[in-house]
Structures are given as C-alpha cells and as structure tokens.
C-alpha cells in the first residue's frame, strides 16, 4: 500500500471553460473558476450529475482541451497538450479495434520506440495484472465490455504515467461488472501508487475508491464541497458495509439531491 505523498502533482488554477454553441447566442459556461490540487499518489473522485463539467475538467487536465481562463500545472509545468505522463481511461474504452488486446496494451511502448520483444513482455505482465491472460490475441469486438475496460486500464498503466485519468470508466457496464472492476481499480491503484483522477456520477463508487471526493454542481460547473475519505487503502469489499461509508454516501446523496433533481427536471423539459 502506498500512502498519498505530500508532493503536489496537479494544480488547477482558476479554470473556466465556455463553449460557443451557436453564433449570436450566449456561450455555455461549462466550468467556472475551478481551483483544485491533487497530491502525488492521491486518488481523487470528481463527483457530480451529468452536465456538471466534470468530464470537461478531465479533458482539460489530459490536455485534449484548453481552458478559456486559468491553467493546469503538472509538476509545476503548464499543460499544453496530451502527453504520456497523463494517460486516460475512457468511458467508451477507445480501444483500437484493428489491434489485438496485446497490441492495444503495447501501444504506449511502441510510441516510445521500444523494441517489439521488450514491449511484448511488459504488456503481457500488465495483461496478467488485469486478469486478461489468455485473451492477448483477441480483438476488442471478441471480448465483453468489462474485459475491454480491463484492457484499456492495462493500456493506460503500461507507459508508467504519473497520473491516470478515468472518465466514467464503468458507466457503460452492468452493475455486477461495475462492482468487480471498482475492486480491481482499488487494488491496482493501491499497488501502483499512481495518482488517479476518477470522474463518476455514482456516489458510492466515488466514496469507495477515493481518498478525496470533490463534489461538483451543475452549470456553471463549480466545486461545491470536498469530502476526505479516511478509510484505509487498499479498499476492500467489506468497507461498503462500514458505518462511516454508508453514512457518508447518504449524506452526500442528501446534499446532492436538489442538484440531481434540477438536472433531471431540466432534462425532462428539454425532451418535451
């Protein structure tokens, strides 16, 4: 088990993001003055209803998008573009369907110019760590959603990044697979000691996995509150029945309910 270090890994300074949807119309304020720091080795969950800008924030940290205002520092340097010190696990897996599981997992090493022999060995090791041994030569369309996400997690870990960014990684999976993969991520993050930023709209998932839950509100996306999770790591399934865990999940739900309600009301209105 690796305790969260004291070093500062990510520093989000006054980040705002506006989208211009249509000419002549006011822009949509997706994020408003977000300040957040993430320590080295820390596991942070970004929790909020859909449309609160949490995925936008993750994309900005990854370097896929630029903020309208503010900046994000990685080890003190401003993030200008994606690089392999921050890898991403996507909700839709984003595996390359023309590559086998093995080739997908090797991709980050291939990008570094590593020779085929060495990268095959490393990739096989990571494939074993996500329990996919025996499926190395399968194509993504030949394996289940849960297995795809395991492959995608292995692919993100292989280049040995500082930070793993996970964007609602289990959103498309059934409830049981979801629970199993949460435990897998709990184990892997404790083993590797990686800094993780994990976007989710599941309160239970956020509390179960994270050292700190950052609660966001809907448009404009702001940070509403932060909850330190004192449960020891690695997180194990029994902790879901811990009194503190249950109470924290309930409290978060109570405080978030109005936001969620408003969100689903406006969604319903938009549909009519």
């Amino acid at each position: 088990m690796t305790a969260p270090g004291n070093g500062l890994q990510l520093k989000i300074e006054g980040v705002s993001k506006r989208y211009f949807v249509r000419r002549g119309q006011p822009p949509i304020q997706a994020l408003e003055r977000i300040d957040l720091t993430v320590r080295t080795g820390e596991f942070v969950s970004l929790l909020g209803p859909s449309g609160c800008g949490k995925s936008t924030l993750l994309n900005i940290v990854a370097g896929f998008q630029q903020p309208s205002e503010g900046r994000v520092l990685h080890n003190g340097e401003p993030i200008m573009r994606p690089d392999r010190r921050r890898t991403v696990v996507f909700q839709d897996y984003a595996l390359f369907p023309w590559m086998t599981v093995q080739q997908n997992v090797e991709f980050g090493l291939k990008a570094q110019g590593m020779d085929p022999g060495s990268r095959a060995v490393i990739a096989r090791d990571f494939i074993a760590r996500v329990h996919l041994s025996g499926f190395e030569d399968r194509y993504p369309h030949e394996i289940s959603g849960g297995m795809k996400q395991r492959a995608s997690i292995a692919r993100a870990l292989v280049p040995n990044p500082d930070v793993v960014l996970m964007d609602e990684p289990f959103g498309a999976l059934d409830a049981q697979t979801r629970v199993l993969l949460q435990e897998e991520v709990a184990r892997l993050s404790a083993d590797t000691g990686k800094t993780v930023v994990f976007v989710t709209h599941s309160i239970e998932e956020a509390v179960f996995l994270a050292d700190r839950v950052v609660v966001m509100t809907t448009r404009p996306g702001r940070i509403r509150s932060q909850v330190e999770v004192k449960l020891p790591r690695p997180r194990v399934p029994e902790m879901r029945y811990d009194a503190w865990f249950i109470q924290t999940v309930q409290q978060l739900w109570q405080s978030l309910k109005p936001d969620w309600q408003e969100r689903s009301d406006s969604d319903a209105k938009a549909r009519h």
Partner: peptide, 22 residues
C-alpha cells in the same frame, strides 16, 4: 472517433505513428 485519437495522443503517439497505426 475522437476518443481514439485522444487515446493515441495521451499514450505518447507522434504524428507518424498516429497516421500509420490509428
């Protein structure tokens, strides 16, 4: 799919690998 390009970029792919492999 934009996320496939993003995946390649965050894994450190340069322009030639991005073209050839993605």
């Amino acid at each position: 799919d934009r996320s496939q390009i993003n995946a390649a970029l965050c894994l450190g792919a340069g322009p030639s690998l991005l073209l050839r492999d993605v």
